[in-house]
Write a protein that binds this DNA or RNA. Sequence first.
DNA 1: GATGAATGAGCTTTCATTCAT
DNA 2: GATGAATGAAAGCTCATTCAT
Lengths: 219, 219, 219, 219
Amino acid sequence: MSETIDLTDRTAETDRAASVRLNDEKMRQILEGARRVFLADGFDGASMNDVARVAGVSKGTLYVYFQSKQALFEALIREEHRRTAERLSMFDEAEPDVALVLTRFGNALMNFMLLPEHIALVRTVSAAAAKFPAIGRAFFDAGPQYGADRLAAYFSQQVEAGALFIDDVNLAAWQFLEALQGGHLKRMLFCVCEPPQQDAVEKAVARAVEMFMAVYRPK
Amino acid sequence: MSETIDLTDRTAETDRAASVRLNDEKMRQILEGARRVFLADGFDGASMNDVARVAGVSKGTLYVYFQSKQALFEALIREEHRRTAERLSMFDEAEPDVALVLTRFGNALMNFMLLPEHIALVRTVSAAAAKFPAIGRAFFDAGPQYGADRLAAYFSQQVEAGALFIDDVNLAAWQFLEALQGGHLKRMLFCVCEPPQQDAVEKAVARAVEMFMAVYRPK
Amino acid sequence: MSETIDLTDRTAETDRAASVRLNDEKMRQILEGARRVFLADGFDGASMNDVARVAGVSKGTLYVYFQSKQALFEALIREEHRRTAERLSMFDEAEPDVALVLTRFGNALMNFMLLPEHIALVRTVSAAAAKFPAIGRAFFDAGPQYGADRLAAYFSQQVEAGALFIDDVNLAAWQFLEALQGGHLKRMLFCVCEPPQQDAVEKAVARAVEMFMAVYRPK
Amino acid sequence: MSETIDLTDRTAETDRAASVRLNDEKMRQILEGARRVFLADGFDGASMNDVARVAGVSKGTLYVYFQSKQALFEALIREEHRRTAERLSMFDEAEPDVALVLTRFGNALMNFMLLPEHIALVRTVSAAAAKFPAIGRAFFDAGPQYGADRLAAYFSQQVEAGALFIDDVNLAAWQFLEALQGGHLKRMLFCVCEPPQQDAVEKAVARAVEMFMAVYRPK
DNA sequence: GATGAATGAGCTTTCATTCAT
DNA sequence: GATGAATGAAAGCTCATTCAT
């Protein structure tokens, strides 16, 4: 069952035909083609024909590397969310100014989340989640949930250090992450438009930090 | 071009064949069938066959009422976001306790946004937005944006009345709306799971109100 | 499971989409096209494309009338073996000369079994039987077995009437039917050649009757 | 043209690439794999992929040893019918009891013909005969026809020796061979079932001998 | 107005075959 | 000599759409 596949534990090797060493270059070509086509058209909207053409390989070759359209899609999403996870910046735990840490983190995160290609990924994965729950879950765990966990851990640290007063660090993390967006992500998700002005984003981040510090900073 | 269609200005009448008065009952049947199928399978994943079967009409009849699959989908989304817009409760401007107003509003909104059928709509529309930007925009304007505008207007009122201190009411509205979600909407969007416990949602709403009041309430 | 389908109980109606009355002419066209293509190329060798072209309908239409290639093939074989069964002539029980009855029957049967189109059917069905046992069994029951049963019943009558002495009428029937062939059927089955000369067949029939009467006629 | 190939005159050597001495072990492996796959799935139903996998060699290697799928199939059938021919037991010309000779021969032949793998071969070859007449003919000549010829030669001997009275030894041979089957071969051909009970086969053989001796034994 | 039969383009996938290594 | 990566044609099948009734 596709539902039971744990995407996070798969390595690229397991996508390949057993005991066969396929061409790495071709593999990259195919995944790149799949990325372009799937992210543009969605799972159902994309055709293997298109993927083959964009990847510059024959349709048959697609099936040498991947068992099915679904398998290719899953491999792609796996690949993508690995990049996503790697992207998540760490917190500078040595920096004593919590507001500064959050501001830096917020700006970095927003810059990434508002990239058109990330928006396309979100769109594609959320649509696919209805059909392939495992894919949606893997993306959620490695992306939003992972980020929230890291942030909550940072908060716990600061609470112990007496720099913050928070009773529910998880909820606090989620709400800070949501507030950061200031509607910009939703607008891009639905409106297919250019990313917002850099200063609008920075202002949203600044206000989110302000709001957060107003509640959770010790008086 | 689908990009130029302005969904918000269309009335149901303009979908119909010119100069013919079609059966309203059939029309409702078709839209209900389309709702079930499109929201379950997405635009590309749905087939007109399924829509016809679920609606209980013949495939030919579908094309009597709608020019194409795309036209039917657009009509459906239009219908849906009209319901959505109607759903958005008003603010009790007479109630002097702002925190209470926001809490009531927040709970009502979250209860609606976390309905599985609303999640399905969000998924479907965001996926379709890549192909049919007009649909995404119409949904955004009538849904999230409309809500933010109403909330911002309420904030302006309260600022004038001296009950709140806000310099950017729009940003404040958006951030309050985002903070309300506390990650629950994202989880449902990606994870195909049951709506969260009622008390978890209420806690998220309460904290969002607290956070908001901490920054914007006059000292 | 295809294995459990009882071909003999199906009527033509059940092949059709439920509650839909499809065009009889088209149905006949399709079955005729299928007959030509399947009997010439076998199940695996035939393509639905070819069937559609030979039948003079579109590929899509094939699937309006039949759910799958296998379903079409099964319907065809059902149709064919109905014709086959009808073909089996009765025995003139009033005729007192048993040898004459057997000679007439043998000649009629051989004339039918050696028809190129019957040979093609035997080839196709026996090959398909490995994949679809139900088809092979249905053909066997309605063809060879049915014939053997009828013949055995006739023998029983003659035994009771004192015209023949047979202890195992079933075995006697089978061996008479086999002896009739005199290698001609095998030659056509493997050699793709013209049916043998009429007099060669008649001689084989005559010898088979002789042989049969030599053992089973009362002295 | 495949029609003009005379399988009976080919030796294994001519299948091989000119002037190369290929590995005999590999050759056997391939033919064994081909036997398993072709006899199970038929010519059209079998894939070179399956043959390669079952044979334990690479797909490329198949084409080193055989020019094409058809060539491999022909080589296999050639191989098979050589085994078949070798299988045909000789007649004990010294044994004075003709009925005993025929009974021994009949039992040995039936035991062989009813082997599931022989049935599979008959099915596969008869199906292939429509497409590759040369294959069907080669099988017929080396199998049924060869057997009938040997038997007819034995009959001639016995006629000359005064042990039998037969005017057409060829027809007599064929009819004895057919009568032996008693329907058992047909049943297995169409019904994909277990071989019949040993005693049922022996009874059929005994009756066939009886019937034969009743006509052709001198009074 | 409503139907459902019919279509043909296009879908995912398989397969016999080739070729560089 | 043996391999397996790569191919493109063709397979079975689906689907949005049209049209005669």
